[in-house]
Amino acid sequence: MANDDIVARIEANPKYHELVRKRSSYSIIMSILMIIAYYGYILLIAFNKEWLGTPLAPGMVTTIGIPLGVGVIVFTIAITNVYVRKANSDFDDMSAEVIREANQK
């Protein structure tokens, strides 16, 4: 199958390995950030409920935990879309180049 040749040529192309390395480290870093944000929040609740229940300012009813919690939601949306944008532009360009080179030879 001609497909096997293309796969072999892609495997031999250092640009392919660079793409995999870059994209993997990018997604691993993003995953770690997400895990820190979520488990950080959960562990804060488990170990320090009082602090999260402190009002933002004297006389207010809104507590520190509310903007932090909404912040985790907004962070989740943001980090997902940052990755999608980056992968759909830079990484896909690299990927397209690798495939083009494999088809040319």
């Binding site: 997604s27 691993i28 995953s31 997400m34 979520y38 989740t76 980090i79 997902t80 990755y83």
Partner: peptide, 10 residues
């Protein structure tokens, strides 16, 4: 909500 970034990245 937090499962979604994991699906996206991995």
């Amino acid at each position: 909500l937090v499962g979604w970034p994991v699906i996206t990245f991995l």
